[in-house]
């Protein structure tokens, strides 16, 4: 497993809360452009793994590499600048602002302009245009100026994705992007994710295997913080251990 080739590498990652092991010696090697699905029942440690990858949690041991560079010691706030973006399962948006402003904040996070106290943010046309483009990608242009508090749950899910895409990441981490969506909304989001170009590597968490199977090229099955099975879609689906810990439920 050469670090040079992987877009995202996770090596022997461990994390415990008190006596509880939530991440036990996890290894991942996601190739550039790959679509990786991480599945596992509730409590398998999927979101914890994401938080370890983004640095919101500090691992007890092990390392994380991004595009070949060890980022284990890099502060989480610096990782977006290196090409990593994520969405949250529990929607974490700016409720008092418009959709447009939410996406603008995502862009501003990577811009030196964020420290400027003198200029008018709304007059920064390149930011406005980039935000509009991100909203167009997720099909929300028509309600760009709507306050977030007046949007539907499905629209917010798409704002989450728009914010991550606006940052133009190399590696995109999607935490249950279908959670709580209706069948129609889910189809829209599936189409949206399928349309993301191949220069973006995507890792997606999902506990419901059916909705995300189509997306996945390789699947990692997590259970009690451990990788149980990893392989291509058909390998994992066919594996008896998958049936045992996961599909059996």
């Amino acid at each position: 497993m050469s670090a040079q080739q992987t877009a995202l590498g996770v090596n022997a990652l461990c994390k415990s809360f008190g006596g509880l092991r939530v991440t036990a010696n996890v290894n991942l090697a996601v190739e550039p452009g790959e679509r990786r699905l991480i599945i596992g029942p509730n409590g398998a440690g999927k979101t914890t793994l994401f938080n370890l990858i983004t640095g919101e949690l500090t691992p007890d041991s092990g390392s994380v590499t991004l595009l070949g560079n060890d980022i284990t010691k890099v502060a989480s706030r610096k990782r977006p600048h290196l090409g990593m973006a994520r969405t949250y399962q529990i929607i974490t948006l700016f409720g008092r602002d418009t959709i447009m402003r939410n996406v603008t904040l995502a862009l501003l996070g990577l811009s030196q302009l964020r420290w400027n106290p003198f200029i008018d943010l709304e007059q920064e046309h390149h930011l406005v245009e980039a935000a509009s483009a991100a909203l167009a990608r997720v099909g929300l242009s028509h309600i760009a100026e709507r306050p977030l508090s007046q949007t539907s749950y499905g629209e917010r899910r798409r704002v989450e994705i728009a914010m991550a895409l606006a940052q133009n990441p190399k590696v995109l981490l999607l935490d249950e992007p279908y959670a709580g969506l209706s069948i129609d909304e889910r189809r829209d989001v599936q189409k949206l994710i399928a349309g993301i170009p191949r220069d973006v590597t995507i890792v997606m968490i999902e506990h419901n295997m059916d909705v995300a199977l189509e997306f996945a090229e390789r699947i990692t099955l997590l259970h009690f913080g451990e990788v149980i099975v990893e392989g291509t879609r058909s390998e994992v689906v066919a594996d008896p251990r998958t049936r045992e810990v996961y599909l059996g439920h």
């Binding site: 600048h81 904040l105 990577l110």
Partner: peptide
């Protein structure tokens, strides 16, 4: 805008690179 962002969603702001 950045400061208001830290008021409303500090965690998200951190994840966005602030």
């Amino acid at each position: 805008a950045s400061l208001r962002g830290t008021r409303d969603q500090a965690r998200r702001m951190n994840a966005l690179g602030y």
